[in-house]
């Protein structure tokens, strides 16, 4: 019986690997059943669809840099102008302490990762509603949409970080092995953004109220995170509570990276654990409600 199948099947293409065969192959059996309750993310399926993730991210990057006149300059201008304003008001007028570093580089080294985080959250939370036409017409793991929305931020981060490196040359600070920690910290920020972003994107599908919540939330979040002030400003007995905000540890970590200061490993560990926790909760919630998206979007 199976041999008959083989003969009439349209010339099967050579699958690239076993995983591609499993999800896109000619022998793959798709079972469609109502799903109930919690289920875990199918990581293998997500991996099989990685090309779509790349293509969607590339689309966002290209569109972003094609439509605008200044292109890449926007990725620099946004944190750079913020730095100038913060330096004037917080650094000079308010005399905010900066742990002995020049205030501009002190605040910019936090603004670059913070801008990445803030953009990742706002773009991922509106991503699903913005891709309603895809969600209601084609099947793919829906997690790809908020993931690709975050992906664009990496390019902006790279551009903005190049200015930071120039500033480090200018001030003659920060060149140390600590720089090697940057990718790890960036990954942890991505986890946090993904955890919060997936939750918010799923909630925005059901409740459009969240479109107004997100910008407000991001703004408040910045002030409970040591972006314009150093973590040392927080009384040491409250430090543990402070680090429950994962961005606190991660932003301070970024400062240690770019200003060559010792890491506060305890704070970093607490923040990293919370970040991973947020990611797990966010993705789990997303997977639970994912199957309703096409009906209610």
């Amino acid at each position: 019986m199976l041999e008959v199948t083989r003969n009439v099947a349209p010339a099967p293409e050579k699958p690239e690997n076993a995983l591609q065969e499993q999800y896109f192959g000619h022998e793959h059996v798709t079972v469609i059943e109502p799903g109930r309750g919690w289920r875990w993310l199918d990581l293998r399926e997500l991996w099989a669809y990685r090309e779509l993730l790349v293509v969607l991210t590339m689309r966002d990057v290209k569109v972003r840099y094609k439509q605008t006149v200044l292109g890449a300059a926007w990725a620099i201008l946004q944190p750079f102008m913020t730095m100038v304003v913060f330096t004037i008001f917080f650094g000079h007028l308010a005399n905010m302490p900066s742990d002995g570093s020049p205030y501009p580089i002190f605040v910019y080294s936090a603004l670059v990762p913070w801008t990445f985080f803030a953009n990742a959250i706002s773009s991922s939370s509106s991503s699903l509603v913005g891709s309603a036409h895809l969600v209601s017409k084609v099947y793919f793991p829906r997690l790809i949409i908020p993931l690709s929305a975050i992906g664009v931020g990496f390019v902006d981060f790279g551009v903005a970080a190049s200015i930071l490196l120039t500033m480090m040359l200018f001030y003659g600070v920060g060149w140390s092995l600590n720089l090697l920690m940057a990718p790890v910290l960036l990954l942890a920020i991505m986890f946090t953004a993904l955890g919060v972003g997936t939750c918010l994107s799923a909630l925005t599908v059901s409740y459009r109220d969240f479109r107004y919540v997100v910008p407000f939330m991001v703004q408040l979040w910045m002030f409970v995170t040591p972006v314009v002030y150093p973590a040392s400003l927080v009384p040491s007995q409250w430090r543990w509570l402070f680090y429950l905000n994962p961005m606190s540890g991660l932003i301070e970590g970024f400062r240690s990276v770019f200003l060559a200061k010792p890491f506060d490993f305890l704070g970093l560990a607490v923040s990293a654990c919370v970040a991973i926790g947020l990611l797990l909760v966010g993705v789990a919630y997303f997977e639970r409600v994912e199957r309703r998206f096409a009906d209610i979007i």
């Binding site: 689309r59 017409k137 199957r291």
Partner: peptide, 30 residues
């Protein structure tokens, strides 16, 4: 597989593609 059934079951053997419209995801700037 865009939406899930409320009850019942379907089984499909082979690579499935659906064309519910043409040009899904086309972007004018590209």
């Amino acid at each position: 597989r865009i939406t899930e059934p409320t009850s019942g079951r379907a089984e499909i053997r082979g690579r499935v593609a659906s064309l519910l419209e043409v040009g899904t995801g086309f972007h004018g700037e590209l």
